[in-house]
Structures are given as C-alpha cells and as structure tokens.
C-alpha cells in the first residue's frame, strides 16, 4: 500500500453531516480493508462556514480511493501520492468535530 493525501473541500454544511460521513467512511472502509486504510483526517473550517477534509489514507491505488469515496458518498477534489513523510512534532490533541 502507498500513502495518499485526499482533499475534500466544502463537503459538509454541519458537524452532524460530517459525523455521518465519517461513519459511512468507516463502514465502507471495513468492506475494502485490503485496498484502503484510513489513517487520519484534518477538518477544514471553510470560509463559507462549511467543513472540508484533508485525509491521509493508505491504499493500493488512486482508483481504490475513488471507489471508497463513491461508496461512502464522500466528495473528492484531489488525490496525491505521498513521496515521503517528515514528522516534526506529534499531531496536536484532536478536538471533536
């Protein structure tokens, strides 16, 4: 598997919608665990008040990520393969969305 960054801009109007999407994402991810693994996500506070996501996934191909996104009804703006990871500090404490 390789690591990918997926950008999903302005996908959700409310935090509830976002929670629901996360649930669908996890459920679909379990069906395709040999192809797709969700590592973590950063919730974006979009300027129009909606929410977006930057997600880190491991996957066998960009197509597997698209398939997962389609199955879980998640928007996709961009999928970029990660060449290397530089960890400077640990992630800050997550704040519940």
């Amino acid at each position: 598997m390789e690591t990918y960054v997926i950008v999903r801009r302005s996908g959700w109007r409310t935090a509830d919608e976002l929670q629901e999407a996360a649930r669908r994402s996890t459920a679909e991810g379990e069906h395709m665990s040999e192809d797709v693994r969700w590592i973590r996500s950063y919730v974006l506070a979009e300027t129009d008040g909606s929410f977006g996501l930057v997600c880190i996934y491991q996957a066998t191909s960009p197509e597997a990520l698209r398939r997962h996104a389609y199955a879980a009804a998640l928007p996709v703006d961009e999928i970029v393969a990660v060449a290397d990871t530089l960890v400077i500090r640990a992630d800050p404490q997550p704040v519940p969305a």
């Binding site: 996908g11 919608e17 879980a72 009804a73």
Partner: peptide
C-alpha cells in the same frame, strides 16, 4: 467549481448501494 457527482448523491445522504 460546480456540483460533483458524489456530493449530488450526498444531497439526500444516500449510500452508493
């Protein structure tokens, strides 16, 4: 940016299935 098919499906929160 225009509507994206996956968000169109999202309007009713339907799953792919």
């Amino acid at each position: 940016r225009g509507p994206r098919p996956s968000t169109r499906a999202n309007a009713a929160a339907l799953t792919a299935r």
